[in-house]
Structure formats: C-alpha cells, structure tokens
Amino acid sequence: MRNQPDYHLFKNTRYALQGFVEVLHNETSFKIEVVGSVVIWVTLIFLSMPFWAKAVLGLSLFPVLIAELANSAIERVVDLVTQERRPLAKHAKDAGATMVLFSLIFTGGVWAVTLYLVYFAS
C-alpha cells in the first residue's frame, strides 16, 4: 500500500508549495539561495547582454535550488529514521551536501563560459 493520496493537480500543487514554504522557513541556506537568485534575476533584466545569455544565466540558478531542496529532503528523512549519530546517516547527509556543492560548481562553470562568450569571444 502506498502512503500517498490520489493524484489531483491542485492538491499536488498545494503540497509542493507547502514544501517550498516549509524549507524556506526552516533552512537558512535555502533562504540565502532564494534571495540571491531573485536579486540576480532582477539584475539580469537591466544588464546589457543578449537575451540568450540572460536566459542561460538565470536558468542556471535552478539546479542550486533543486539540489538544496533535495538535500533538505534527505536531511529530514535521515532525522526521521534516527536522531543518533551514525555513520550511514552522516554519509547520507554528506552526499546531499556534495550534491549542493556540485550544483554550485556547475552554475559557476555556466556563468564563466557564458560571460566569456558574451564579453571576450566576440
């Protein structure tokens, strides 16, 4: 038996938004990343660069947010299973943190290549 209600578009959207708000309220890293992303998105609107570059730079921020949400889910599940300090719990949380780190490295690479193409390769 699955621990899941029947699919309903509006209910599922509400669940997703509740999850977003819960993580936003309880995870400092996610708050910082959301605020930073919003500031960057607004700034991109006013920068003088091709639309494709603005789109690439703006969209490249989503993997960081997605990774942080997944990391938060991993941390909550681990904490639900055990509050004790156990090697497997640490490894799971460390893997989630690595996912966030790799998403930041990926985004940094996208920014470096895009800005190089816009300002130096033309």
Rank of each mutant, 00 (worst) to 15 (best):
M1N: 04
N3F: 15
P5I: 02
P5Q: 03
H8Q: 13
L9Y: 14
L9P: 06
F10A: 08
K11C: 05
N12R: 08
T13N: 07
R14P: 00
Y15F: 15
Y15R: 15
A16L: 15
L17S: 09
L17A: 12
Q18G: 03
G19R: 07
F20E: 01
V21P: 01
E22Q: 10
E22K: 10
E22A: 11
E22R: 11
E22G: 06
E22N: 14
L24F: 15
L24V: 02
H25S: 12
N26M: 04
N26W: 03
N26D: 10
T28S: 12
S29K: 06
I32P: 02
I32N: 05
E33S: 15
V34F: 02
G36K: 08
G36C: 12
S37M: 14
V38M: 13
V39T: 11
I40D: 01
I40Q: 04
W41Q: 14
W41G: 04
V42Y: 13
T43A: 15
L44W: 05
I45Q: 09
F46K: 09
L47C: 08
S48T: 15
S48V: 10
P50D: 13
F51T: 13
F51L: 14
W52N: 07
W52M: 05
W52G: 00
K54Q: 06
K54N: 00
A55N: 07
V56Q: 03
V56H: 02
L57Y: 03
L57V: 07
G58A: 11
L59P: 01
S60K: 01
S60T: 05
F62N: 03
F62G: 00
F62Y: 12
V64S: 11
V64A: 11
V64L: 08
L65K: 06
L65P: 00
L65I: 09
I66F: 11
A67Q: 04
E68D: 14
E68V: 07
L69T: 01
L69W: 05
A70N: 13
S72D: 10
S72W: 10
A73M: 08
I74C: 01
E75T: 09
V77K: 09
V77G: 00
L80W: 08
L80Q: 14
L80C: 04
L80M: 06
V81T: 08
Q83D: 12
E84L: 10
E84Y: 10
R85K: 15
R85P: 00
R86L: 10
R86D: 05
R86S: 12
R86H: 06
P87T: 03
L88C: 02
L88N: 01
K90M: 11
K90L: 10
K90E: 13
H91A: 15
A92Q: 04
K93Q: 07
A95Q: 02
A95S: 11
A97G: 11
M99V: 15
V100M: 03
V100W: 01
F102P: 00
F102C: 04
S103H: 04
L104K: 15
L104E: 11
I105R: 07
I105M: 09
F106N: 04
F106M: 01
T107N: 15
T107G: 04
T107P: 02
T107E: 04
G109T: 07
G109K: 06
V110T: 14
W111Q: 05
W111Y: 12
A112Y: 13
V113P: 01
T114W: 06
L115D: 03
L117H: 06
Y119V: 03
A121R: 14
S122V: 12
S122G: 14
